[in-house]
Every structure is written in C-alpha cells, then in structure tokens.
Write a protein that binds this DNA or RNA. Structure first.
Lengths: 338, 338
DNA sequence: CTGAAAGCGCTTACAG
DNA sequence: CTGAAAGCGCTTACAG
C-alpha cells in the first residue's frame, strides 16, 4: 500500500485556473462536443499549464464504470498461454481497456484469491484460463460474482459463462486417426488431469478414433499427470518401463511432448524412427524442435482475440445469450511421425 | 467502458445491518485491532449475510494509496520477458500488490501511451522494461511522473530512476573471450539496436575482449537489427553473403541465435561444427535446442524479483537513494561452440 | 472502544 | 452552452 506524497492537480484547480466551472472542465476532458471551441481551448491550456493528469480512478468510481479487465491465466511461461495472452491484450488495448493480470500457476487456492482481488478492484470484466483442478467450489464462486466473464481454453461444468476454446475432441481424433492409419495399435496418452474438461474432451477423441477401427484401449497406456515438460518425462518413464511399451505417443500438449522427447533421447530412442510422437497446441517451438514435432494447432492467439471480443460484447450489451465459440483444430504432420 | 448495472452492497449497509457506525465497520474490514471481538464478529456476520464485497477502488481513492503496480514490457512471447514477468508477478503478489500489465511490442509510441494510462490509473509504482528505441523524449516523460519507478533490463540515460539488470559487458566479454580462446579471429555480432543501452554494453565487452588480444574488429561483421528470430535470420544472411564470412557468431540474444541457427540449417551449415554460435539470456529452450546452444545466463527471473523488491522499497520509504543492481552473468558452454 | 461529519476527485442530474 | 450542488463508497481526523 503506497501513500501518495505529492498531491495531484485536480480538475477543480484546472477549472479555477481557466475561469470555468468544474463541470465544464469535466466535459472538456471527456471531449463532450457541447462545449464551445473557445472554452475548450482555454481549459486545455490550463491543463497543460498546471500539468494536470486525469484521475481515472475517481472518474470510474463516480460513474460506476471501469476500463480495467482482469485476466487470470495458469502460467505465462507456457508459450501457449503467452500467445493467448497476446491475443487478449492487443484486442483489449485497442478497445481502450487495460489488463490486470493474475497468474495462478495452476493453483486453485491462488485462483480463488485472484478472482476475489479482481472483483474487489471492480474490474469491468474477467477472462479466465482456469486451473486444471478447478472444482464445483470454483464454479460456485464464479456464479456468485456479477462481473461479466469469459472462460477460455478450459470449461467448467455448472458455470454460467461464455466460453472460447478449440475442439479438443476433434483435434485428438485427427492425431490418433493419423497414428492408427500408420499402423500403430498401442498408442499412449500422456499428460493432463483426468478431471479437467481439456483432458475429458481429448479422451473422447482418443476413444472415438479407436472405436472407428474397432480397437480397444489399454488403460495402462494412459498416464494422468501435470501437463508440463517434467510431467512428460515422468509419464514417458512410466509407460516405457511397462512390459509392453507403446509404439506411438499422443501427448496432452507440446510441452508434454518436449519432456517426452527429452526422456526418449536420454534412453536413446529416436522419435520419428523408433517411436512416433504427436503433440498438441503447435506452439512456435514445435516446428523448430529437433526433430520437428507433429502436432495439432489450437490457435491460442485467436482464442485470446475471440475471448476479448466476446467479453467486450458481454460488458456492453446486457442480457445477451451465453455463447460457446469452438475453433476447428488442424493437424500438422512433421518428422516425429512420418 | 462498462457500466455496472447491479449495485454493490456498501459498507454503510453492512454497518446498518450490524447496528454499528460506518467507521466501525471500516475498521473491521481493515482488521484494526482496536475493535472488540464481539463487534467484529457482528460486522463480519453482516458482511457475510449481505454478500459484501470490499471496494478497493473507493478505499484507494480516499486513502490516496494504491496496491496496483504497472508493469510495462516489450513482448511477453519472448521467454526472457515472460520469465522476468514471473519474477515480478510472484514477488509483487506476495507483497499484496496486483499487476496492471502493458505490452509495447517494442513500439515507443505505444510505450508512451501505456505510461500515461498507468499514471492515470494512479498505480502505486511502475516497473519498466523499455522499448529498444526509447529516446530522450521517453526520458523526459519518465522524469515528469512522480510515481515511483524501476527500470529493468535496459537503462536509459538521463532518467532519474533505479535500475536492475545484468552485467551485459562482462557477459559479452566472457562469450567473446571463450571464442577467441578457441582460435576464432572473425567473430560476428548480430542483432540489437545500436542506440540501446543493452547493445552498447555488449559492444563494450565485445571490444574489450578483442583489445585484450590486440585484435581489431571488422565493422562489416556487426549487424544492427531487431533482436528477434526473424532479425537473426536476416542478419545471418547478410553476414554470410559477404566475401569473408565470420567463423563464429555472437548473438544479441538466444532468440536471435535461434534465427541464426535456423538460417544456418537452411544453408546446410552446422553450428558447432562448421561455425560456432553463442547466444545471450540462457532461456530454457537454449539447453534443449538442437544442438544445445552456448549462451550467457542473464537470470531474468531474478531480475524480476529484484526489480519488484526494489520498487516495493521505493514505494514505502521516501527519499531513498537511487540504486543500480547489476547481476553477474554466467557462461554456459554447450555444443554450438565445443 | 465507537460515532458523526467531512472529504478523496471526479461525474451526474438539474437549472438556467 | 455553462454552473452549483449532490454523491460514488470508502477513510480520516476528531470527539466522546
């Protein structure tokens, strides 16, 4: 809590200096056209002379509005998230909003505190990239707050809220279908938290692709673990140490795939030759990795842009219907599965 | 600009419901110990009953304080920056502050607008990772604002301000010394903007390492270009198309090095075998790249942590002396230069 | 330990 | 086209 020592120049002082009323000065700062040019210029001159700085906090307070939007994400060091954030930020900034950022590092507790903080700061709206273990308790908290909100990337059941994300089921189906066509019959599914919507959707696609070929899934090839590089390494170790290891690996995300490939290297197994690997997200590094990673685009920047636009609508029109925007994914076949 | 339709429960209503005065209720929400347990519980109960949400905006306004800190960075998709941002965020959050984030994408205009916006929002302090083309005009703007501020990663002359960064000169010296020891005599310096402090410091180290061996520098091997992957590609093309191409390349950043290596691949030149490459920053990808990149650690997360702590001090003690915190870099020799 | 009144810096009706 | 007064939801002295 910082105390401001230096006192600001107020609009009242500006008005006095310009010889007009405060209300007139207020209309000038807000560019209201019903002020005459002469008066406007006089006031603007006084503002400059005194070094006036507009106080948005006071303005927002009185007008009960806000041009701050809260954005809560799981982890900005994950390229998928930072790309998403860029989409959100550029869009909101061009609409005149500023972003209050919170990072949960996938902790539900921290997320809960951040949501409260945002609401206490009276943000105009919230964009949420939920932690993977978000629960019914989270849903309850979200439903209680009146602030317009949009969920991105990850849904949560029973939350009355707009949503923007990619079609994870279809994306996974495409990846698995591709591997099955190549003749693989033992495909591992590594990473992700089983209770999260992003995992459940992918699993549906995983199942459907197998069903299409009348194949059954070996549950021992499914490893539920945090979707990070570390998680990938550990999951790979678990699955390769089994009596019947897989011949191909579907990873929850590119980050998991990088961990998987790192551990494969450590074991002198060559991705794309000895075993096939597919990721998810198509982050910029995927293409530049060695070998380049087959993966599914999930267009994080577009998701960010759409989430921001959706929130903008929610904030400005009332009583709009809930929307769900689901982007179509795209499979990029590269060297790890050719 | 969002109008709030639903009116909030006010502290006054809470007080009324609890049968105490507003000032008492105010003391309760702020955990003032001079309120009796009985009264406190009565008020807390009323808050819960009415679903009261603390209005930090009103509180900050009246007390002329703020627990929001503005953080302005060049590009969150750059891992160096996102690591820095994580350091800043976690530190500030643990100190009870929330981050208002601005991204300039290295545009000085956008930076100028963001600084104004932050000040209008009455942030308690600002942490700035300046755009590479920041000028005297930027310095002037910064000197005018009374808000406590800390520069990170990049300095700007004539700005009266604390600074946290790494010793770029020493880091570069270490890298170049290493290459010279390996016998290289034609070392290129690719990327970075010549007017920025980060470039100037590196160039000092570049020169000093050459001077130590009584070697002169061939200016045609120095390419001034935006420090991005694209910049790296372009710079490499320029330098390799010269009659006497370099035998080793020092890159302004790891990002530049990745572009350089991508372009080398395209030309079938093998880094670490046909030519040596050294980066700067040691972002996580550097170690995992193929081949792993020799680079200099600049500890972005630590810089973030230290910048946040420094700002915290600036905001809470007055009239402190200006500080410059310069972290020692570290050379990591990997396959691109062995 | 608690209360009544004033005020942070704006905007909002309402008058003229 | 412009002005005087009230108020946004808190906190801050000041009394008691």
């Amino acid at each position: 809590m910082k105390k401001m020592n230096k006192q600001r120049v107020t609009l009242q002082e500006v008005a006095q200096h310009a010889g007009v009323s405060t209300s007139t000065a207020s209309l000038v700062v807000r560019n209201n056209p019903r002020i005459s040019e002469a008066t406007r210029n006089k006031v603007l001159q006084s503002m400059e002379d005194l070094g006036y700085v507009y106080d948005r906090v006071a303005a927002n307070m009185r007008s009960k509005s806000s041009n701050i939007v809260g954005v809560i994400v799981t982890d900005i060091s994950n390229t998928f998230i930072s790309e998403f954030l860029i989409g959100v930020q550029t869009t909101l900034e061009s609409l005149g909003y500023t972003v209050l950022l919170g990072t949960t590092f996938d902790s539900v507790d921290k997320q809960e505190r951040l949501i409260s903080t945002m609401v206490e700061h009276r943000v105009g709206g919230i964009i949420l990239n939920l932690a993977s273990k978000s629960s019914a308790r989270t849903a309850k908290q979200l439903n209680q707050i009146r602030t317009p909100k949009v969920l991105a990337n990850r849904e949560l059941s029973d939350v009355q809220c707009d949503y923007v994300g990619v079609d994870y089921e279809q994306g996974t189906w495409m990846a698995i279908h591709h591997l099955l066509q190549k003749g693989h019959r033992r495909i591992a599914f590594l990473g992700g938290i089983k209770t999260s919507s992003t995992w459940i959707e992918r699993m549906k696609g995983f199942k459907r692709a197998h069903d299409d070929e009348n194949l059954t899934i070996d549950d021992s090839l499914i490893i539920d673990i945090v979707p990070t590089r570390e998680g990938g390494k550990e999951a790979l170790a678990q699955v390769m140490d089994q009596p019947e290891p897989p011949t191909a690996i579907f990873c929850f995300s590119d980050l998991v795939a990088f961990g998987v490939m790192q551990e494969l290297s450590a074991r002198s197994i060559k991705p794309g030759e000895d075993i096939d690997v597919v990721g998810f997200d198509n982050i910029p590094e995927a293409e530049l990795y060695h070998p380049p990673l087959t993966t599914v685009s999930s267009f994080p920047r577009s998701i960010g842009v759409k989430a921001a636009n959706l929130l903008y609508h929610k904030m400005n029109e009332q009583d709009e219907e809930l929307q769900r925007l689901i982007l179509k994914p795209q499979l990029h076949i590269r060297e790890t599965s050719t």
